[in-house]
Design a protein around this nucleic acid. Structure first.
Lengths: 146, 146
DNA sequence: TTACATGCAAACTGTTTGCAAATAT
DNA sequence: ATATTTGCAAACAGTTTGCATGTAA
């Protein structure tokens, strides 16, 4: 698991998957290509490692679960996905790395995007001395009506 | 682990710990009293099960970790604490059950309250058909400056 | 040819559970 | 007396890691 990612700066949003990987400093291996296609070829996605592992298996490709985890973290370090701040035991990864918020269906754990420009958070307090705000996460939790 | 909590309605905010427990339908056992004192005798607190377990041990009381977990969940069902929606592997419990938001120090995982009336979330979108909003969580993530 | 990536199994963390023994009422 | 609560150890889920093997450049 040795890595020294060159902090991949701007990656052209419409690059092919192999290019996207190369620009992130990651060799386009069979496994990373399969995961990359699942993540980036359709629109914005939220996945857990388990889900992605199941999807790739359903396509007939073998990628070990450990590799799914490792790859998601590499993608995260490269800025290709964002890890979401949601309660619960599982880690969620989001292919939409722009600032936006989420609906969370409490019954199923399912996530849905809320477009970035819909919600405004007003009156953010001053952070304590020597601290700066890195991110403001808003999770709107939903339950079945009544 | 059998329970049938009578959905303890209003609990006088200044009740003694034994009363608080009784009003919640929980027998005031040695363990629940020790945990209750740690949680409710000082002001608002955020704890993980591990932390609380360490605190109670430091006081010379023995309470098993399993009992700490079970008790926190009973307190939660009784409305005495709220479980927080924070990323990461650990579950945080908050003795402030009113609607308010949090600073999260990313380096340490430490939580601080943001008073309820400071932050306003504007432009909440309509929830999808048949769903209702149960809670809006705002987590302001902080890192060391520069 | 060599540095990087993968798969496997084992380790690890936080949490939950089954059940016998202990305790509150 | 009896229903509830506890502690323990084992089970469990999700995730990470060490290392031998395989692969990309």
């Amino acid at each position: 698991m040795s890595e020294n990612l060159p902090f991949a700066p701007e990656i052209a949003p419409s690059a092919t998957i192999p290019d996207k990987l190369r620009q992130a400093g990651l060799r386009p291996t069979r496994q990373r290509l399969a995961l990359g296609r699942l993540l980036f070829e359709t629109g914005d996605r939220h996945v857990t490692a388990e889900q992605l592992h199941a999807e790739v298996a359903a396509l007939g490709e073998h990628v070990s679960l450990a590799t799914v985890y490792n790859t998601l973290h590499q993608f995260k370090r490269a800025g290709l996905v964002r890890e979401l701040a949601i309660e619960g035991s599982k880690a969620y990864f989001d292919t939409n790395t722009s600032n936006h918020n989420h609906f969370l269906l409490e019954s199923t754990g399912e996530l849905m995007d809320i477009p970035s420009d819909v919600i405004r958070v007003e009156g953010l307090p001053q952070p304590p001395e020597g601290m700066k705000i890195t991110h403001v996460d808003v999770v709107v939790r939903l339950a079945k009506d009544q």
